[in-house]
Protein backbone atom coordinates (compact mmCIF):
# COMPACT_ATOMS: atom_id res chain seq x y z
CA UNK A 1 0.00 0.00 0.00
CA UNK A 2 2.84 2.34 0.91
CA UNK A 3 4.61 1.42 -2.31
CA UNK A 4 1.50 2.10 -4.32
CA UNK A 5 0.98 5.45 -2.61
CA UNK A 6 4.62 6.32 -3.17
CA UNK A 7 4.34 5.43 -6.85
CA UNK A 8 1.07 7.22 -7.45
CA UNK A 9 2.14 10.40 -5.67
CA UNK A 10 5.51 10.58 -7.39
CA UNK A 11 3.67 9.88 -10.63
CA UNK A 12 1.45 12.86 -9.90
CA UNK A 13 4.42 15.08 -9.04
CA UNK A 14 6.47 14.20 -12.09
CA UNK A 15 3.36 14.25 -14.24
CA UNK A 16 2.63 17.82 -13.17
CA UNK A 17 6.14 18.81 -14.19
CA UNK A 18 5.61 17.11 -17.55
CA UNK A 19 2.42 19.13 -17.82
CA UNK A 20 4.32 22.37 -17.14
CA UNK A 21 6.66 21.48 -19.97
CA UNK A 22 3.66 20.84 -22.27
CA UNK A 23 1.60 23.96 -21.56
CA UNK A 24 3.62 26.05 -24.03
CA UNK A 25 3.02 23.47 -26.74
CA UNK A 26 -0.69 23.28 -26.05
CA UNK A 27 -1.06 27.08 -26.04
CA UNK A 28 0.76 27.39 -29.32
CA UNK A 29 -1.35 24.65 -30.81
CA UNK A 30 -4.58 26.13 -29.55
CA UNK A 31 -3.88 29.61 -30.87
CA UNK A 32 -1.76 29.08 -34.00
CA UNK A 33 -3.02 25.56 -34.76
CA UNK A 34 0.47 24.39 -35.49
CA UNK A 35 2.62 21.79 -33.79
CA UNK A 36 6.05 23.09 -32.90
CA UNK A 37 8.24 20.05 -33.48
CA UNK A 38 11.22 21.92 -32.03
CA UNK A 39 9.48 22.16 -28.66
CA UNK A 40 11.83 19.61 -27.11
CA UNK A 41 14.85 21.58 -28.30
CA UNK A 42 13.41 24.74 -26.75
CA UNK A 43 13.39 22.80 -23.50
CA UNK A 44 16.96 21.67 -24.13
CA UNK A 45 18.03 25.26 -24.70
CA UNK A 46 16.28 26.37 -21.52
CA UNK A 47 17.96 23.58 -19.54
CA UNK A 48 21.40 24.58 -20.82
CA UNK A 49 20.51 28.11 -19.78
CA UNK A 50 19.51 27.01 -16.30
CA UNK A 51 22.62 24.86 -16.08
CA UNK A 52 24.88 27.78 -17.06
CA UNK A 53 23.21 30.09 -14.55
CA UNK A 54 23.67 27.55 -11.80
CA UNK A 55 27.13 26.22 -12.58
CA UNK A 56 28.80 29.29 -13.99
CA UNK A 57 27.10 32.07 -12.01
CA UNK A 58 26.32 30.04 -8.93
CA UNK A 59 22.65 30.95 -8.96
CA UNK A 60 19.94 28.84 -7.44
CA UNK A 61 18.26 27.09 -10.43
CA UNK A 62 14.88 28.44 -9.40
CA UNK A 63 16.32 31.95 -9.40
CA UNK A 64 17.73 31.26 -12.86
CA UNK A 65 14.16 31.63 -14.07
CA UNK A 66 14.57 35.39 -13.84
CA UNK A 67 17.04 35.25 -16.73
CA UNK A 68 15.97 32.09 -18.57
CA UNK A 69 12.28 32.89 -18.91
CA UNK A 70 12.70 36.31 -20.59
CA UNK A 71 15.54 34.96 -22.72
CA UNK A 72 13.32 32.15 -23.96
CA UNK A 73 10.55 34.67 -24.60
CA UNK A 74 12.87 36.61 -26.89
CA UNK A 75 14.13 33.43 -28.51
CA UNK A 76 10.56 32.33 -29.18
CA UNK A 77 9.75 35.70 -30.71
CA UNK A 78 12.78 35.44 -32.95
CA UNK A 79 11.88 31.94 -34.10
CA UNK A 80 8.34 33.08 -34.76
CA UNK A 81 9.52 35.99 -36.91
CA UNK A 82 12.14 34.03 -38.84
CA UNK A 83 10.57 30.61 -39.30
CA UNK A 84 6.99 30.24 -38.12
CA UNK A 85 5.38 33.38 -39.44
CA UNK A 86 6.69 32.98 -43.03
CA UNK A 87 5.38 29.39 -43.01
CA UNK A 88 1.87 30.15 -41.78
CA UNK A 89 0.35 31.07 -45.14
CA UNK A 90 1.94 28.11 -46.92
CA UNK A 91 0.77 24.47 -47.11
CA UNK A 92 0.61 22.99 -43.64
CA UNK A 93 3.55 20.66 -44.13
CA UNK A 94 5.85 23.64 -44.48
CA UNK A 95 5.58 24.58 -40.84
CA UNK A 96 5.95 20.93 -39.83
CA UNK A 97 9.19 20.61 -41.77
CA UNK A 98 10.45 24.03 -40.83
CA UNK A 99 10.08 23.32 -37.10
CA UNK A 100 11.48 19.81 -37.54
CA UNK A 101 14.42 21.32 -39.38
CA UNK A 102 14.86 23.75 -36.51
CA UNK A 103 14.80 20.83 -34.10
CA UNK A 104 17.63 19.05 -35.93
CA UNK A 105 19.52 22.31 -36.24
CA UNK A 106 19.32 23.07 -32.53
CA UNK A 107 20.32 19.53 -31.57
CA UNK A 108 23.41 19.70 -33.73
CA UNK A 109 24.30 23.23 -32.81
CA UNK A 110 24.20 22.08 -29.18
CA UNK A 111 26.33 19.08 -30.08
CA UNK A 112 28.91 21.37 -31.65
CA UNK A 113 28.96 23.86 -28.77
CA UNK A 114 28.42 21.65 -25.75
CA UNK A 115 29.52 18.17 -26.96
CA UNK A 116 27.44 15.07 -26.34
CA UNK A 117 28.27 15.03 -22.61
CA UNK A 118 25.62 15.04 -19.93
CA UNK A 119 25.52 18.09 -17.69
CA UNK A 120 23.76 18.30 -14.37
CA UNK A 121 23.64 20.47 -11.28
CA UNK A 122 24.04 19.50 -7.62
CA UNK A 123 20.90 18.90 -5.56
CA UNK A 124 19.25 22.11 -4.42
CA UNK A 125 17.89 20.70 -1.18
CA UNK A 126 19.83 18.46 1.13
CA UNK A 127 16.90 16.40 2.29
CA UNK A 128 13.74 14.72 1.12
CA UNK A 129 10.18 15.76 1.84
CA UNK A 130 8.18 13.32 3.92
CA UNK A 131 4.45 12.95 3.68
CA UNK A 132 3.42 10.40 6.31
CA UNK A 133 5.45 7.30 5.57
CA UNK A 134 6.33 8.49 2.06
CA UNK A 135 9.55 10.16 0.92
CA UNK A 136 9.93 12.43 -2.07
CA UNK A 137 12.75 14.39 -3.60
CA UNK A 138 12.22 17.99 -2.51
CA UNK A 139 12.91 19.19 -6.06
CA UNK A 140 10.01 17.07 -7.24
CA UNK A 141 7.62 18.59 -4.73
CA UNK A 142 8.85 22.13 -5.45
CA UNK A 143 8.35 21.48 -9.16
CA UNK A 144 4.83 20.28 -8.48
CA UNK A 145 4.03 23.39 -6.43
CA UNK A 146 5.44 25.70 -9.09
CA UNK A 147 3.36 23.94 -11.73
CA UNK A 148 0.17 24.31 -9.76
CA UNK A 149 0.81 28.01 -9.11
CA UNK A 150 1.75 28.57 -12.72
CA UNK A 151 -1.37 26.83 -14.02
CA UNK A 152 -3.62 28.83 -11.71
CA UNK A 153 -1.99 32.14 -12.67
CA UNK A 154 -2.20 31.29 -16.34
CA UNK A 155 -5.85 30.25 -16.08
CA UNK A 156 -6.61 33.49 -14.28
CA UNK A 157 -4.70 35.52 -16.85
CA UNK A 158 -6.52 33.88 -19.74
CA UNK A 159 -9.88 34.52 -18.08
CA UNK A 160 -9.38 38.00 -16.74
CA UNK A 161 -6.78 40.01 -18.61
CA UNK A 162 -7.42 41.72 -21.92
CA UNK A 163 -4.58 39.79 -23.56
CA UNK A 164 -5.93 36.53 -22.16
CA UNK A 165 -9.38 37.26 -23.48
CA UNK A 166 -7.95 38.15 -26.88
CA UNK A 167 -6.04 34.87 -26.90
CA UNK A 168 -9.12 32.87 -26.00
CA UNK A 169 -11.15 34.65 -28.66
CA UNK A 170 -8.49 33.78 -31.23
CA UNK A 171 -8.60 30.14 -30.15
CA UNK A 172 -12.36 30.01 -30.53
CA UNK A 173 -12.72 31.72 -33.89
CA UNK A 174 -9.79 33.25 -35.64
CA UNK A 175 -11.83 35.07 -38.29
CA UNK A 176 -14.31 36.49 -35.83
CA UNK A 177 -11.46 37.66 -33.60
CA UNK A 178 -9.88 39.42 -36.55
CA UNK A 179 -13.19 41.12 -37.36
CA UNK A 180 -13.52 42.23 -33.74
CA UNK A 181 -10.29 44.15 -34.15
CA UNK A 182 -8.04 41.74 -32.28
CA UNK A 183 -4.57 42.00 -33.84
CA UNK A 184 -4.33 38.29 -34.60
CA UNK A 185 -0.75 38.25 -35.96
CA UNK A 186 0.39 40.01 -32.79
CA UNK A 187 -1.49 37.49 -30.66
CA UNK A 188 0.31 34.74 -32.57
CA UNK A 189 3.67 36.31 -31.86
CA UNK A 190 2.93 36.81 -28.16
CA UNK A 191 1.57 33.28 -27.81
CA UNK A 192 4.56 31.70 -29.50
CA UNK A 193 7.00 33.75 -27.43
CA UNK A 194 4.97 33.18 -24.28
CA UNK A 195 4.78 29.45 -24.94
CA UNK A 196 8.55 29.42 -25.33
CA UNK A 197 8.96 31.35 -22.08
CA UNK A 198 6.87 28.71 -20.32
CA UNK A 199 9.20 26.02 -21.66
CA UNK A 200 12.05 28.05 -20.19
CA UNK A 201 10.26 28.01 -16.84
CA UNK A 202 9.78 24.26 -17.11
CA UNK A 203 13.47 23.87 -17.97
CA UNK A 204 14.48 25.59 -14.71
CA UNK A 205 12.16 23.32 -12.74
CA UNK A 206 13.51 20.23 -14.51
CA UNK A 207 17.22 21.04 -14.38
CA UNK A 208 17.57 19.89 -10.73
CA UNK A 209 15.89 16.59 -11.67
CA UNK A 210 17.37 15.65 -15.04
CA UNK A 211 20.65 15.93 -16.94
CA UNK A 212 20.87 18.02 -20.05
CA UNK A 213 22.42 16.86 -23.36
CA UNK A 214 21.81 17.78 -27.01
CA UNK A 215 19.06 15.24 -27.65
CA UNK A 216 17.37 15.54 -24.26
CA UNK A 217 14.42 17.19 -26.01
CA UNK A 218 13.56 14.02 -27.91
CA UNK A 219 12.91 12.18 -24.66
CA UNK A 220 10.52 14.83 -23.46
CA UNK A 221 8.87 16.09 -26.61
CA UNK A 222 7.10 12.81 -27.24
CA UNK A 223 5.78 12.91 -23.70
CA UNK A 224 4.63 16.49 -24.29
CA UNK A 225 2.80 15.48 -27.49
CA UNK A 226 1.05 12.69 -25.64
CA UNK A 227 0.01 15.04 -22.85
CA UNK A 228 -1.23 17.75 -25.17
CA UNK A 229 -3.35 15.33 -27.16
CA UNK A 230 -4.64 13.53 -24.07
CA UNK A 231 -5.71 16.83 -22.57
CA UNK A 232 -7.30 18.05 -25.76
CA UNK A 233 -5.06 20.34 -27.72
CA UNK A 234 -5.21 23.90 -26.51
CA UNK A 235 -6.45 23.20 -22.98
CA UNK A 236 -4.31 24.10 -19.97
CA UNK A 237 -6.24 22.22 -17.31
CA UNK A 238 -6.40 19.36 -19.81
CA UNK A 239 -2.62 19.40 -20.05
CA UNK A 240 -2.38 19.17 -16.26
CA UNK A 241 -4.68 16.16 -16.14
CA UNK A 242 -3.00 14.60 -19.18
CA UNK A 243 0.39 15.12 -17.56
CA UNK A 244 -0.68 13.50 -14.33
CA UNK A 245 -2.12 10.52 -16.24
CA UNK A 246 1.16 10.07 -18.08
CA UNK A 247 3.15 10.48 -14.87
CA UNK A 248 1.14 7.82 -13.03
CA UNK A 249 1.22 5.38 -15.96
CA UNK A 250 4.96 5.82 -16.28
CA UNK A 251 5.63 5.52 -12.56
CA UNK A 252 3.48 2.40 -12.11
CA UNK A 253 4.60 0.61 -15.24
CA UNK A 254 8.29 1.23 -14.61
CA UNK A 255 7.93 -0.33 -11.17
CA UNK A 256 5.57 -3.18 -11.92
CA UNK A 257 6.62 -4.05 -15.47
CA UNK A 258 9.99 -2.66 -16.52
CA UNK A 259 11.35 0.87 -16.94
CA UNK A 260 11.87 0.29 -20.64
CA UNK A 261 8.19 -0.39 -21.11
CA UNK A 262 7.07 2.71 -19.22
CA UNK A 263 7.32 4.80 -22.37
CA UNK A 264 5.64 2.15 -24.44
CA UNK A 265 2.66 2.13 -22.13
CA UNK A 266 1.91 5.77 -22.47
CA UNK A 267 2.28 5.61 -26.22
CA UNK A 268 -0.24 2.80 -26.19
CA UNK A 269 -2.43 4.87 -23.88
CA UNK A 270 -2.13 7.69 -26.39
CA UNK A 271 -3.14 5.45 -29.31
CA UNK A 272 -6.10 4.09 -27.35
CA UNK A 273 -7.29 7.61 -26.68
CA UNK A 274 -6.94 8.38 -30.37
CA UNK A 275 -9.10 5.38 -31.23
CA UNK A 276 -11.84 5.94 -28.70
CA UNK A 277 -11.72 9.67 -28.00
CA UNK A 278 -10.09 11.27 -31.02
CA UNK A 279 -10.58 14.75 -29.57
CA UNK A 280 -8.57 13.94 -26.45
CA UNK A 281 -9.77 12.97 -23.01
CA UNK A 282 -11.19 16.42 -22.33
CA UNK A 283 -11.18 17.75 -25.86
CA UNK A 284 -14.17 19.65 -27.03
CA UNK A 285 -16.08 18.36 -30.02
CA UNK A 286 -14.50 19.13 -33.34
CA UNK A 287 -11.02 19.69 -31.95
CA UNK A 288 -9.73 17.17 -34.44
CA UNK A 289 -11.35 19.09 -37.27
CA UNK A 290 -9.64 22.39 -36.69
CA UNK A 291 -6.00 21.50 -36.64
CA UNK A 292 -4.28 21.57 -39.92
CA UNK A 293 -6.28 22.15 -43.05
CA UNK A 294 -4.45 24.02 -45.71
Amino acid sequence: MTTLGQLVLSGIFIGAIYALMSIGLTLIFGVLRIVNFAHGEFLMLGMYGAWAMTRLLGLNPYLAMIAVVPAMFLFGGLVYRLIVSPALDKPHLVVVFATMGLSIFMQNAALMLMSADLFDIPPVFGHAVTIGPLYFKAELVVGFVITVICTLVLQWALKSTYLGKAIRATVQDREAAMLMGIPVPRIFLITFAGGSALVGLAACVMMPLFSVFPTVGLNFVLIAFVIVVLGGMGSISGALIGGICVGIVQSLSSYYVAPAFGQMFFFILFLLVMIFRPNGLLGQKGAADIGIAD
Binding site: F225, V226, F261, F267, L271, M274, A288
Partner: peptide
Amino acid sequence: VICVRLRGPFFILSTLAAAEVIRIA
Protein backbone atom coordinates in the same frame (compact mmCIF):
# COMPACT_ATOMS: atom_id res chain seq x y z
CA VAL B 1 -7.60 1.28 -38.02
CA ILE B 2 -6.07 3.47 -35.34
CA CYS B 3 -5.58 6.72 -37.14
CA VAL B 4 -7.12 6.85 -40.58
CA ARG B 5 -9.98 8.97 -39.20
CA LEU B 6 -7.63 11.47 -37.62
CA ARG B 7 -6.53 14.67 -39.22
CA GLY B 8 -3.58 16.99 -39.28
CA PRO B 9 -1.37 16.91 -36.20
CA PHE B 10 -3.39 14.13 -34.60
CA PHE B 11 -2.55 11.83 -37.48
CA ILE B 12 1.10 12.86 -37.51
CA LEU B 13 1.51 12.34 -33.78
CA SER B 14 -0.28 8.99 -33.80
CA THR B 15 2.02 7.63 -36.47
CA LEU B 16 4.99 8.91 -34.48
CA ALA B 17 3.71 7.18 -31.35
CA ALA B 18 2.95 3.92 -33.17
CA ALA B 19 6.50 3.82 -34.55
CA GLU B 20 7.87 4.42 -31.05
CA VAL B 21 5.86 1.46 -29.77
CA ILE B 22 7.42 -0.73 -32.49
CA ARG B 23 10.91 0.60 -31.74
CA ILE B 24 10.65 -0.04 -28.01
CA ALA B 25 9.23 -3.49 -28.70
